[in-house]
Design a protein around this nucleic acid. Sequence first.
DNA 1: ACAACAAAACCGACTGGCCGGTATGTTTAT
DNA 2: ATAAACATACCGGCCAGTCGGTTTTGTTGT
Lengths: 190, 190
Amino acid sequence: MATQAERRATTRGKLIDAAASVFAERGYHGATLDAIAERAGLSKGSVYHHFASKHVLFATLLGDRLEARLAEAPRPEDAAAAFLDRASDPRWAPLFFEFLAQAARDDDVREVFVAWLRDTRARLADLIAERLGGPPDEQRAVLVSALANGMLIEVMFDPSVPPELLGRGVELLASATGAGGGGSVPRRGA
Amino acid sequence: MATQAERRATTRGKLIDAAASVFAERGYHGATLDAIAERAGLSKGSVYHHFASKHVLFATLLGDRLEARLAEAPRPEDAAAAFLDRASDPRWAPLFFEFLAQAARDDDVREVFVAWLRDTRARLADLIAERLGGPPDEQRAVLVSALANGMLIEVMFDPSVPPELLGRGVELLASATGAGGGGSVPRRGA
DNA sequence: ACAACAAAACCGACTGGCCGGTATGTTTAT
DNA sequence: ATAAACATACCGGCCAGTCGGTTTTGTTGT
């Protein structure tokens, strides 16, 4: 094959991909390292060569995914739409919430998630500010972030919820007059 | 002791209480039936006498809790506040999300959760309608429900989020223009 | 070129503990 | 007497993690 570094990288990639699908299918506890190794066309030994533990593998995987989900971020409402697209992958959403539960109980995982959450908020705040003018407003960002995650639940368990509802909600929250700090613009629209 | 029916009821109560605290502390998979039995001052045999399986015990418990969380429902914003009070119990929230993940993968659990979700929305819709007049609006209820659950996440991982923020958000969403008349908040920009 | 050696990547059989579930016995109510 | 409530001891499957070995890549000396 190629150089060792490349080999290492591709193998790691295979493992992460396999882990993603197996974890998604069966959940954290339902997934076995053997199954992951098998799907990657590798062995469990290899898994442990690349990741210290099942837990680390999981955290790595989720970290990557959470990051990726943020990558695409056009306007707030569109980000919202993109967000819910992910939700429509019925295999990803449960993992997200499983991750939450883990994060609540495990400090390492918590750190990963908190970092992601902060990042999400910051980007949302920027997007909103950019669209409405005025300084970034942390509180609005929190509301929008919350609404998006909450809508994930609604959609997950009720397919009849129209996807564009999230966009409407985001507009309502984002265009609201800023709280506390800067009296921002109650105006909305492009 | 007392009559058998009473005995049965109190024992069942003890078990559910114990299960609540153990599940909350360690999560579903981390909790063992032995631990639950021990905390209840009972034995595992008793657990299986009252509940067919660990899974059933969990579903029962969660069903009760979800129900209880709805019981107190004054005005929408207050319901929201009450909701977040629960959230401030750092032991309950993770369970909620673990339950979500389970529900997404297991049809029995899903049924329980979907029923609860529908109920929540219906009550929220009524509350909102009652407060603002006009017919119940399913979509607003969905948004409020989503926001509340989403804020649970925000608060869980960032204690600095002011609890009253949820109330503000709920007002923004609830008072938005429903079908027809009372549109006070502008719809789509431009 | 090519051994000969070293190191990293990878394999897969094994195990040890854990815990859900069961089977059987003992106590308490009717 | 008898049935329900509860206790105790046990089993058996599962699976994360380990470990010694094999293959692949990389290096060095001649």
